[in-house]
Structure formats: structure tokens, C-alpha cells
């Protein structure tokens, strides 16, 4: 059983939803980033979504745009992102790592080589924002061969007619983009996303994670009552920006914020 599947079945037995913590690899620098991701499971993260930076993050709001710029400035690359995953995996065999980013760095790396290297580094899944199902087969073929999930995205604009095409070859879980917009700007309405989450879960037979518009522990708890997993990213990376602005170590405030969100998600029940 894959680490992602094991994670969701364990949480299902505990009647809990997963807290998925998103951070940008290499933000604010590779060493601090490793320290942060190593500590995230202890803060309550069930799954780590590790962004890899891209110069042109079209689907991201200001918080994650700035995180990508900090990471790139610190010399982060996709190769080094895999190094980070590998270093994390040495001390943690169970927490799934899902990489998230844009297609071009993976395309340039080469799909087959990337899939093999990612699997070898202990990466469990990949989310590519700008690779809709119509364009995904070559990448999915490479990832399938290496046993890495290509996590599919569904959005508020994905209607019933299109949903089967979106979910074809889906594995691991499905990421439901809860708001039409970029990351970290609009706020998701938990009750509003309930029908969509149920529709996607029924059509895919997979756990459904909700992200793009979850900012507060209250909202995270509300979404956790609806979804199988709650993804939070922008408010976590904003903790890094805030700490850097005041010259502080970014890890403690980020981990404290993650712990508050994790507690809210876990207390809400699945």
C-alpha cells in the first residue's frame, strides 16, 4: 500500500481528516526549509505538500509568489527539492510527500528521469497546476511506471460532463480547488463546497482534499467536516515572510501556526 493510501486509511479508522501542510521547498533557504519540513509531522501535518519554485506561478496569489521568489533567490531547483525530500525521508518513513508546482521544471527535467528520481527520493505524489487531463498522459505514464501518484485537480468550473475526464487515471487523492481564483486570496465556504466534494468523492472513489481558500483554524475545522483532507499553504508561508521581516527564525511561528490548524482539523473529525 502506498504511503498516501496508508495515511488515509489510518485517518479513516480514527475518523479524522488529514491536515495537509504546504510549504515551498527552499523557503527561505534550503537548510531552514529542511528543518521546517522535518518538524511538520510533529506539529500535526499528516501529509506534506512541498512546493517547488517556478519563476511564473500563474495560479498563485502574492504569498506563494513571494515564497517562490525567496526560494529561487536562495538557489532552489527541482533537483534540490528532491534532495530535500530524500533528506526528510531518512528520518520519516510514513508521512507522505506530495510535490506541487508547475509543469516546465518537470518537463525540462524529463518525465521518465524525474519519475524515477522522485520515487527514489521518497516522493509519493505530484500535483501540477498547469497540466490538465488533456495534457497529462505522458507525465502520468512516467509516474505510473515509477509508482508515484499524479494527483488530479477538480475545480468549481469542472461540471458533471467533464468530471470523468478529470478523474480518469486519478490516484492517491483528488485535490478540489475550492474557489475560482489563485491561492490564498478568496476564502472557501465550507458548506458551499460540500456538494462538490461529495460529487468528486463519489465519482473517484478516492479521498478528496480541499485547498486554495483555507486560512484560519475555524475555517479549516469547517472544511475538515466536509472533506477528507484540508490543505493550507499561504498562511503558513506568510509566517516565513513575517519572521524574515522582523529578523526572527521563521520555523517557530510557522510550526505554531501549523499546529493550530492541525489541532482544528483533527478535533473536527472526518
Amino acid at each position: 500500500m502506498s504511503r498516501i493510501d496508508a495515511c488515509f486509511s489510518r485517518l479513516k479508522a480514527q475518523r479524522r481528516s488529514a491536515f495537509v501542510a504546504y510549504v515551498m521547498a527552499g523557503d527561505p533557504d534550503p537548510a531552514a526549509s529542511l528543518q521546517i519540513i522535518k518538524a511538520l509531522p510533529g506539529a500535526g501535518a499528516d501529509i506534506i505538500e512541498l512546493g517547488f519554485p517556478f519563476s511564473d506561478p500563474m495560479a498563485d496569489g502574492p504569498a506563494i509568489q513571494l515564497a517562490a521568489q525567496r526560494a529561487l533567490k536562495a538557489g532552489m531547483t527541482l533537483v534540490k527539492t528532491l534532495d530535500l525530500a530524500r533528506a526528510f525521508r531518512v528520518g520519516d518513513q510514513t508521512t507522505p510527500i506530495v510535490l506541487m508546482g508547475y509543469l516546465n521544471p518537470v518537463f525540462i527535467y524529463g518525465y521518465d528521469r524525474f519519475a524515477q528520481d522522485a520515487a527514489q527520493a521518497g516522493v509519493d505524489g505530484l500535483i501540477i497546476v498547469d497540466c490538465p487531463p488533456e495534457e497529462a498522459d505522458p507525465l502520468a505514464d512516467a509516474l505510473d511506471a515509477a509508482g508515484v501518484s499524479l494527483v488530479r485537480l477538480a475545480a468549481p468550473t469542472t461540471d458533471d460532463k467533464r468530471l470523468p475526464a478529470v478523474l480518469r487515471r486519478a490516484s492517491g487523492f483528488v485535490y478540489y480547488v475550492s474557489v475560482a481564483g489563485v491561492t490564498g486570496v478568496k476564502e472557501a465556504d465550507a458548506e458551499g463546497v460540500r456538494p462538490a466534494v461529495e460529487r468528486v468523492r463519489k465519482a473517484s472513489g478516492l479521498p478528496v482534499a480541499v485547498g486554495f481558500g483555507v486560512k484560519t483554524p475555524e475555517r479549516a475545522a469547517a472544511v475538515a467536516r466536509v472533506a477528507d483532507a484540508v490543505v493550507v499553504g499561504s498562511v503558513l508561508v506568510e509566517e516565513i515572510a513575517g519572521a524574515l521581516a522582523s529578523g526572527a527564525d521563521p520555523a517557530p511561528p510557522l510550526l505554531a501556526a501549523a499546529a493550530r490548524l492541525a489541532d482544528a482539523v483533527h478535533a473536527a473529525g472526518g
Binding site: 500563474m58 488533456e134 477538480a154 468550473t157
Partner: peptide
């Protein structure tokens, strides 16, 4: 599929795909 040989295509976020 919007391809000129290997070029072109529709590499956009799922939210934009229906549009």
C-alpha cells in the same frame, strides 16, 4: 488538441480549462 506538431496545447489550470 490545439497542436502544431508537438507545440501548442492547453496547459492551463483546471479552473480555466472549461473556459
Amino acid at each position: 488538441a490545439g497542436r502544431f506538431g508537438d507545440y501548442g496545447g492547453r496547459f492551463v489550470a483546471e479552473t480555466l480549462m472549461p473556459l
